[in-house]
Amino acid sequence: MRQGQIYQAIKEENETKKLQAELKMEKAKRKKAEMETSFLKKLDEIERRRG
């Protein structure tokens, strides 16, 4: 491997790691939003029962 190829391989690896980290963060955000939605639905259901 030449120096340029090594540099390119490292750059691609760093980009892959960056994208994986971003994906993990987005999945966590989505899960949090789903949990909040679920909680609010349950709360709404309880409030309706109380009348």
Rank of each mutant, 00 (worst) to 15 (best):
K11R: 13
E26Q: 15
L19C: 09
K31M: 01
K11Y: 07
K17A: 12
E45S: 10
T37L: 04
K17P: 00
I10R: 13
Q5P: 04
E47I: 05
A21P: 01
K29F: 01
E12D: 15
Y7M: 13
K17Q: 13
Q20M: 06
Y7G: 10
K42G: 02
I10K: 14
G4M: 00
E34R: 01
Y7E: 15
A33R: 07
L19T: 13
R2H: 09
K24T: 07
E26Y: 02
S38K: 10
R49A: 08
R30L: 01
M25I: 13
K41R: 11
L40W: 02
I46G: 08
E26K: 09
R48P: 02
T16C: 10
M25T: 13
K11Q: 12
I46Q: 10
F39Q: 11
K42M: 03
A33Q: 12
K11E: 05
D44L: 02
L40G: 08
E47P: 01
I10H: 13
L19Y: 07
A21D: 07
M25Q: 14
E13T: 13
E22D: 08
G4N: 08
K17Y: 04
T16M: 09
R50H: 07
Y7W: 09
M1D: 13
K29V: 02
F39L: 10
Y7S: 15
R50G: 07
E47A: 05
Q5F: 00
A28L: 06
K41I: 00
E34T: 03
K24H: 12
E26H: 05
K17M: 13
L43F: 00
A33M: 02
L40N: 15
Q3H: 14
L43W: 01
A9S: 11
M25Y: 05
M35N: 15
K24Q: 14
T16Y: 06
E47G: 03
E36F: 00
R30A: 12
K11H: 08
A33D: 11
I46W: 01
A33S: 12
T37V: 04
T16W: 06
E13V: 02
K42N: 14
M35V: 12
